[in-house]
Amino acid sequence: MTRITVYLTGGIAAYKAVQVVRNLEKQGHDVWVVMTKNAEHFVTTNTLAALTKYPVLDDLWEKENEASIPHVHLARWSQLALVVPATANFISKMANGIADDAASTTILATKAPKLVVPAMNDQMWNNPATKRNVSLLKRDGVHVMEPATGMLAEGYVAKGRMPEPEEITAWVENILNQNKILKNKTVIVTAGGTQEAIDPVRFIGNRSSGKMGIAIAQEAADAGAQVKLIYGNVSVELPKAGNIELIHAASSEEMLTAVKREFEQGDALVMAAAVADWRMAKVADHKLKKDPEQNTLSLTLVKTKDILREVARHKKANQVVVGFAAETNDLLKNAQKKLMSKGADMIVANDVSKNVFGNDQDQVVILEQNNTRIDKWPLMSKQAIAKGLIKKIADKLK
């Protein structure tokens, strides 16, 4: 499933764009619509809102938008931007960075890949200004679908007609599939912290939010993989996608069982969870009461099983195992030691002494087996780190 924002602009072909929206939804994509005011002369916002179950964005200045910045939210939400139909006017705005309404402002703000389906009179299509603008878009990495030759609104046959909705849908799917670098692969990701019970009320835990593991799961799903997200205690929203299976594992023992079971048929494992190193030797079956005369409490802890080492030593030649090293000192030394002792193919090391937990950004260092090069990445968002990591895993699986 891909989050697609469809931009409807003011051409007669807008009525056919409704079917494109419907087709994309049938393919399992999550679709949100932005419309220009001119597009509303041909199609109503009610039609698109009813289809997508999202309010149509067509005005930045409506009362309900006063306290929010809807175009920025939608720009970040989008994983793909599709302009259909794209008028000569809107193509010109995109090419020259003009942002003077809801649609042009939102598409300028998004970093998502952009697809444009032109539809206009042949004379406008062949105008040197339009050709120049289309060339600029292509140079900027925008995908532009060639208009069809057929009956135009003016009543004669020429090039400029919008292709049929089924052709557009197939074109979009083809471009999406080019980015499915993990198609037909199964990726297991762990996220969050484990909780080791002391008694029915208390537990030993850690500060992991689960953000990094969840970002990796989302990127793996976007890359076409079937994802098994094994999560412990997380403080962020879990992803919702048809190709992500959520498996809860509260303790280190539960996580070990789940990881071993799922990795049997998996292609890659990313151990991003913060698994407890210690657990109670014996969990109390009742709440431990506080004695007024008691000033200390002694707990007998035993070492938990090392999930990464347990799984890595049994991995097949065609499987990839990635571990994380969260360190507060001697980052490279400890990460190198972990790479050698755990048997993982790759270790992602980060310094957690610098307010990393719950943060949206991180700085990591990648170490790989049989590779003396240390790959130090700059400070970036966890989503960007996840995307880069998924690319590395896909390369290894080749």
Rank of each mutant, 00 (worst) to 15 (best):
H29F: 12
K180I: 09
E237F: 07
M346I: 14
R132N: 13
S68Q: 14
N89L: 04
N355G: 04
N184W: 10
Q27W: 12
M271R: 04
L246F: 01
Q319N: 08
A249V: 01
I347Y: 04
Q363W: 04
R139P: 02
E253T: 09
H248I: 02
T44I: 09
G11R: 00
V302I: 14
E237N: 11
S341V: 15
Q195A: 10
G97W: 03
V187M: 10
A312K: 12
I12C: 00
M151K: 13
R202N: 08
I230Q: 04
V352C: 07
A50E: 04
N177G: 10
A276I: 00
D30K: 06
G210H: 03
K387Y: 12
V116K: 07
E154Q: 05
T194H: 03
A394F: 05
K37D: 14
D101P: 00
R207G: 10
T149G: 07
G266M: 08
K260D: 12
V365R: 09
N329E: 15
A109R: 04
P239G: 03
K228D: 13
T300V: 15
T186F: 12
F324E: 12
M380S: 07
V352L: 08
T130E: 00
A102C: 04
G343F: 11
S208A: 06
K387M: 08
A99E: 08
A317V: 13
S251V: 00
A49S: 15
V365C: 11
A241F: 10
V364K: 11
A81G: 14
A88L: 02
V34E: 09
T304N: 15
A276N: 03
V72C: 06
D345T: 10
S252R: 03
R22I: 01
G358S: 04
M145Y: 09
T190N: 05
I91G: 01
M162S: 05
T194F: 02
K396F: 13
P165N: 06
R76N: 15
K228P: 05
K183H: 11
